[in-house]
Design a protein around this nucleic acid. Structure first.
Lengths: 154, 154
DNA sequence: CGATATAAGACTAAATATATCTTATATATC
DNA sequence: GATATATAAGATATATTTAGTCTTATATCG
């Protein structure tokens, strides 16, 4: 009952892009290094984010990824569900046909409620807010030591 | 990000016991058949429920399981966490040391909030309430066909 | 004591998650 | 157009977790 690593990595990726803002191209390699995600794994995750319309992928020399929307428009929920599919805390939430009678089921109702709450909380959160604060899963904001500084926008 | 089968089975087990009320002894076999849980798997789950103080296990001939508390005192959260451990929706929630600085992390804060909400919702729900209504994961309440009837209290 | 029922843990199988590797394709630059 | 660089896409491999089964031991009733 825990977010997968792929989901976690997806958040980190978008968070890093969000710091650069909408439209700024960042290479896969830079993102991978900064967010501590294996390069090839990041590629797969990026493909999912791309299919979901969250980022755009540019191939070729000087290629990379960039956000298609303003960070304030991108919710935590959309990023997570782009990676792991729609959240369902219990099997019967996602596949009501797995029960004989889920509409009447007292347990099912609780799971539905909890699921809705969770999705609502994740939807309330946007990446502009997240990016404006520090995050433990990324290298810190630009600072004294220099080589930790994000690449400048062009 | 989904409840495991063991967790689901634990709920079914307690739900079935709750229908019989606190203290009523029900054989493992009956529970297994009624809740559609493999007998030996149920045994393992019962041990966890027992360690958590939710049920009592009686060995020997005419053995079985019984609730130690009134169903109204047993929450959905306690049963689930007896089986799968404390819920943590993201790794950093359960193991803050997995991040360099989780107290300052914006993402971490959201997961904490979501986690608390989820646990609160599950804690609000007790098994008296759940048992008073139909549940899709169990054979129905006693009814016309006869052989689906719960065993009488002794 | 014998029959019955669960305990406890070893063991197996299946599913899922995680990571990597390889070949193909796209783009910038010369 | 040729070359270098970067990502795409999917196959493959590994590890972890989940799910289920089996065996031997133990407890209780009658």
């Amino acid at each position: 009952m825990r977010l997968t690593r792929a989901g976690e990595y997806g958040i980190r990726c978008v968070l890093h892009l969000a710091r650069h803002g909408k439209g700024t191209l960042v290479s896969r390699k830079e993102i991978a290094v900064r967010t501590d995600v294996p390069t090839h794994f990041l590629a797969k995750i990026a493909q999912q984010l791309s299919r979901a319309g969250i980022i755009e992928i540019l191939q070729g020399a000087n290629g990379g990824y960039r956000l298609l929307a303003d960070p304030s428009e991108i919710t935590l929920l959309s990023v997570i569900e782009a990676i792991i599919g729609e959240i369902s805390l219990n099997d019967c939430v996602g596949r009501p046909e797995s029960c004989h009678n889920s509409t009447l089921c007292s347990v099912h109702r609780i799971w539905n409620k909890a699921n809705q709450q969770l999705r609502a909380t994740l939807q309330e959160t946007d990446f502009a807010t997240l990016a404006s604060e520090d995050a433990c899963c990324l290298t810190p904001f630009p600072e004294a030591d220099g080589h930790n500084r994000p690449i400048e926008k062009k």
